[in-house]
Nucleic acid binder design. Structure first.
Lengths: 223, 223
DNA sequence: CAGTGTGAAGTTGTTCACAGCA
DNA sequence: TGCTGTGAACAACTTCACACTG
């Protein structure tokens, strides 16, 4: 039994970097679709997005689609395949805690709807912020969280608080049934095994950029 | 001459993932320092940050520091070592274009100063936004960019515009001497070889989160 | 021993090479 | 010929094993 990829679990899950590239493909395809373009090949995508052609082919294959030799992929079908793969068909709802600038930016981030993602309620504790309206959402006091969490069920909790508040907010969210936490606070928070934790730190990117800048290593492109 | 990293250039650069973890270490160490803790070991850091102990050791070694057996590292020295390594000693200045919510969030992001990073001017084109003051910064019309770019030299250009404007803003910035571009718009922009491009997409993280959520693969932690 | 430090093994992700197809 | 699709080589990153040290 020669298995080269040592498959310790059952299902080989797809590489995370591939997952991270999916939104890029999707955005690109949507722009093609708007222009009325109906077919696209992996090498063409690769050229436009500065990626390796084989990499594109493999990424697309993960979503389950299959292309036509010489023609490439059908744009609409490919979009649907990716959307489906990412689970964008069903709407995922989220609570947000910490309605400072970053929180507000997320609340009316235009692209979320395209990703089947919706922030349904937002909370803060600071008097000047509580009561403000951001887009459709009125910022509530965090004390209302419990009540709200009983009424509306959201799967995702977004933390955009200062670092010191992040852990207790996370605990609160988990206590009220959130399944995943998207943490923008620059601290590592502890969550139980069964809770999904996604950390997003602006600083990680800044560090890469500053390092490149200060060591002058150009033409290096990442996210 | 046995070089394990296939060294096509001259200097073996450090792994990008390590670089991305540096701000995490730094934040953690700063919190330790505030509490007056003077020494810390790699295994201890690893425990608190949910990382592998050896990984921590290697990451710290990249910054050039060396620890003491049994005692660990001296917190202050370690902080300085990382700060120095990331080039945080000198202040890096930036122009920002696109002062919507995300732009505003970045303008008064509290942590940037800790990273020797400063946004010195911000621009937009929308009448209600131009003229607003965000923190210390007055939003100027993009037409002033050229004039401003001649006066103040900034190394970094931050793009927080809608997707369709990103490329032309990038071109403008490059034309006026920016060395690095930090792009938050969800498109891939083209830049010359010698310009550093750092893409930061909220969607990449969202995709990972939604995929985990919809396939219920929990206890997986990333950024 | 509890820590650092490091070479080797393992794992994951990317790129290459080429077979098959229209 | 220009594309998909795939197994194998390669490169990058992480983890393991263990020698060393106060």
């Amino acid at each position: 039994m020669k298995n080269k990829r040592s498959n310790k679990g059952i299902q080989t899950s797809i590489p995370e970097p591939a997952l991270r590239r999916m939104p890029t493909y999707l955005g690109y395809l949507r722009r093609l679709a708007e222009k009325g373009i109906e077919h696209v090949s992996a090498p063409a995508i690769a050229r436009d997005l500065h990626l390796d052609p084989t990499l594109v082919t493999k990424d697309l294959a993960y979503t389950g689609i299959t292309g036509k030799t010489r023609v490439g992929y059908e744009v609409r079908a490919l979009m649907l395949s990716i959307e489906n793969f990412l689970g964008l068909s069903k709407v995922n709802e989220a609570f947000l805690v910490g309605a400072g600038n970053l929180g507000k930016a997320l609340i009316n981030y235009p692209g979320f709807t395209d990703f089947g993602f919706r922030i349904v309620a937002a909370f803060d504790v600071a008097p000047p912020i509580v009561g403000q309206k951001v887009g459709e959402i009125a910022i509530q006091h965090l004390d209302n969280f419990r009540e709200m969490a009983e009424k509306k069920k959201a799967m995702v909790g977004i933390i955009t608080t200062p670092a010191h508040a992040a852990q207790s907010v996370a605990d609160l969210m988990i206590g009220w049934g959130v399944k995943a936490i998207w943490n923008f606070a620059p601290v590592h928070i502890k969550v139980p095994e069964n809770i999904i934790l996604q950390n997003t730190s602006i600083y990680a990117n800044l560090a890469v950029l500053l390092n490149k800048l200060n060591t002058r290593q150009s033409s290096n492109e990442t996210d």
